[in-house]
Nucleic acid binder design. Structure first.
Lengths: 241, 241
DNA sequence: CGCCTGTTTGAAGTGGTTCAAGACAGGTGG
DNA sequence: CCACCTGTCTTGAACCACTTCAAACAGGCG
């Protein structure tokens, strides 16, 4: 059974900007269906021209690119509320792949309707651009991380960002949030080897800054962690597509 | 004397998507002036909320962020045709700084007019989003570079991209293009030390793949260079704002 | 000429990689 | 219920790509 946008479980969260009734109505029409996929399913692949756009409703995913020789760079972790496929939408060509890490449910939109969005829904078009700019901003920060931060700082940065975001999604329980990825995924995101990632995780655990076990991330003192990770800009309320 | 959009020296290049008369007319009104700045001038700074947006008409610039302790990450090199300040435009907050590396001339737009663009010029709004997605795409590639490529590959990648772009801007003369940056800038862009950047440049020179001297980049065989840099996606025609 | 900025080179040190192997948990089939 | 997978995490040890430190060199400019 498809979730109606009026009853969207995400929209009410403080993380997301409020939406007018008119906008919700439009989204309801823009949305063509809902999709449930199993862990491991590819959602979009590099070089393809997907006719569909998604918003993650629940579950976790990964966005990554591959180099010609197989080296993998994880670009970001996909969490509920993330919009997927903007690149395919406007550029008609994906330069990265997306896959589901856990089971996911996704709202499905029709790419060909994107143009009517720009024509008739200036606010939503603006929001879309906002999201794109926000993604750009995030990647800039990630670039500064891989380029300048040490492994220890990098992981602290990544954990801080994820913890804050998952907290804002109200997925925090006590001082921990779900984080169902492999160490290899984090290593690929930060440009580190698996072995070194593992050893650095052990250091953070020992210093009582962060403990990532069994798919959950425990952070006793988020501000201390942010300090180690040299985190500066807060997470802003964002539009939800 | 201000350049009229109808006589824009960039618009006719194959690198840029053709624009309808209506669009050109709109840009003419959107543009509030032209600015000439000297080398070294800051154009936007992190944390600020600039009321102006720019398009680089001529000259070279740099986009960068600073970490709290002063480490610098160059996010991209700004070349003629690049749009500057989209982030400030939609998010009202810059998370990176921009400065002129050489003397530059820039078209100046009024940020407050951005909203009328979304209201009345759906095509231009779409183009803006396209540009933002393109920037995101570029940063993703840069991330894969810093995260996965060796220093040697990284520089080959950066040089390939710059050479192709400057060629498309018709700034190539023979087998060389202008590239008026310091080695330190490239080092900051690729997350490398100055010393290692210098030594790696020497290797590329020795292998006759690229020779960057006196502000000019000489590339005898761009395809060979792209192969070393594992470059995969071509430069697409892009909208010009 | 003296000074400044940027480039180049040498040498020593280290943060991170790679290689290798063991431990642990969950899943499967006999 | 046990034996044996397979995938993930963990740990130790050797190595190296890149950093840091240090100093010399080259060109432009007052």
């Amino acid at each position: 059974m498809t979730t109606k946008c009026t009853q969207c479980p995400l929209r009410g969260l403080e993380l997301f900007k409020p939406m007018s009734d008119r906008e919700v109505g439009f989204m309801e029409r823009f949305k063509v269906g809902e999709m449930t996929v199993q862990a491991g399913t590819p959602l979009m692949s590099e070089g393809s021209n997907s006719p569909q756009l998604f918003t993650a409703l629940s579950g976790f995913g990964l966005r990554y690119t591959l180099l010609a020789d197989g080296r993998r760079q994880v670009l970001s972790f996909i969490l509920p509320g993330d919009f997927i496929g903007l690149q395919a939408g406007v550029m008609e060509y994906m330069t990265h792949s997306v896959e589901a890490t856990t089971d996911m449910t996704l709202c499905v939109f029709n790419r060909s309707e994107l143009w009517t969005l720009f024509r008739n829904q200036a606010e939503r078009a603006f929001d879309l651009t906002w999201l794109s700019a926000s993604e750009e901003r995030f990647l800039g920060e990630a670039l500064a991380t891989i380029g300048q931060r040490s492994a220890y700082e990098s992981i602290a940065w990544a954990f801080s960002r994820l913890y804050r975001r998952l907290d804002a999604l109200e997925m925090r329980e006590g001082s921990s949030v779900p984080l169902p990825y492999r160490q290899q995924n984090l290593a690929d995101a930060l440009g580190l080897s698996l072995v070194h990632t593992n050893k650095t995780l052990a250091q953070l655990r020992e210093k009582k800054l962060a403990n990532w076990t069994n798919g959950r991330l425990h952070v006793p003192d988020i501000e201390a962690l942010e300090e180690v990770g040299l985190v500066e800009h807060p997470t802003l309320p964002r539009p939800l597509m």
